[in-house]
Design a protein around this nucleic acid. Structure first.
Length: 334
DNA sequence: GATCCACAGGAAGGGTTGGGGG
DNA sequence: CCCCCAACCCTTCCTGTGGATC
């Protein structure tokens, strides 16, 4: 039943994107100067998850690569590369592949110096989840690199600008902004239909089922494709030649869990304990949670450190903090 | 209404880590 | 081989806030 599983994978970038013409055009326009060897406009892509921000950024850069002879590009996920050092390291890595800069042996802004000295073809850097960057001043530094164009991706504009360095904020005030909204049900169905036609045997999934998946995904294409992928896999394993409604129903919680699971697996052991305690006991105040945590581990960290852990969990969208000061409680999302 | 208390989160400093140079 | 140094993590100390208590 499955012909090509790749097109259902989350990281797959389609050759043609659907329902994002306006956004693609705006981004292409912002990058136009690159065609003439100039620097492109700094551009923000804002919107909830699963609405195609990363996909459109990568797609547009790819288009540009086909149109322009010579550009360099690099994708940096700031969720994984959240420190100034790591982000700069990745950016330098995009330029010559190997970097012989190691922490400890080089003056602390050697990385930035090397990036600034860059004088090759135009360099397009996509900074995904840019709100996760600990030191936003790095954006200010990158802003001053002549050959470097930035595409910045984040969920919410307000949250991003709240803790931006003042210099950065004023510079980025003038940056272009492109907003992405949830997909409609019809758009999600069309996106899935396209992937189904490429990746599955004809007739494997009916439109009615795609509508059902779209409904469960609530405008999030990543969730929709996750459900579709799991449903197709389950049906294939069961030896069916098409997906039926009950398989879809079974795949919905799986897909949700899958997306969350990859995040949970990246937690440190201590963060994981906090996550599990919130899972087990539900909504809690910081005090009770800390007491349980202290019981649960051999070498408890201080309250201050646990507060840092919790704010990480909130940033990762695994935990919600509700209320202020004493009244604040923590619980898992969803 | 003054005081207390639990909590959030900033700032500063120390310890650990892990690479390169002497 | 040892030492140096920056990155990183954790702790300590601190200020600010708002609900609870008297």
């Amino acid at each position: 039943m499955i012909r090509d599983a790749r097109v259902l994978q989350p990281e797959f970038v389609p050759r043609e994107v659907q329902h994002r013409d306006a956004e693609v055009n705006q981004l292409t326009h912002a990058l136009d100067p690159i065609v003439d060897g100039e620097r492109g406009d700094t551009t923000f892509l804002f919107g909830p998850s699963g609405v195609g921000k990363t996909c459109i950024a990568q797609y547009t850069v790819e288009q540009l690569r086909e149109a322009v002879v010579d550009i360099e590009h690099q994708y940096v996920n700031c969720w994984q590369n959240y420190s100034r050092f790591r982000a700069l390291y990745r950016i330098l890595e995009g330029l010559d592949g190997t970097v012989d800069v190691h922490r400890g042996s080089t003056p602390h802004d050697e990385l930035l110096r090397r990036v600034r000295e860059y004088d090759g073809p135009p360099y397009v850097v996509v900074l995904d989840e840019v709100d996760q960057l600990q030191d936003s001043a790095v954006l200010y530094d990158l802003y001053r690199v002549p050959k470097l164009s930035m595409i910045l991706i984040a969920n919410r504009e307000e949250e991003l600008f709240v803790d931006l360095d003042d210099r950065v904020a004023s510079r980025l005030q003038s940056a272009r902004r492109i907003r992405f909204d949830h997909y409609t049900e019809a758009e999600l169905v069309a996106i899935m239909r396209d992937r189904v036609d490429w990746g599955l045997e004809p007739g494997a999934v009916s439109d009615a089922l795609l509508r059902r998946i779209a409904d469960a995904a609530a405008g999030d294409a990543r969730v929709a494709l996750g459900i579709l992928r799991n449903a197709a896999r389950d049906a294939a394993r069961a030896g069916h030649d098409s997906v039926d409604p009950s398989t879809v129903t079974g795949a919905i919680p799986d897909a949700r869990r899958e997306i969350r699971q990859t995040t949970v697996e990246n937690l440190t052991p201590h963060q994981r304990v906090l996550y599990d305690l919130l899972d087990e006991h539900g909504r809690q105040h910081a005090g009770e949670l800390y007491e349980r945590y202290r019981e649960a581990v051999d070498d408890p960290r201080t309250k201050r450190t646990v507060r840092n852990y919790l704010s990480k969990l909130v940033q990762y969208d695994l935990v919600v903090a509700e209320g202020e000061n004493r009244a604040r409680t923590y619980r898992l999302t969803g």
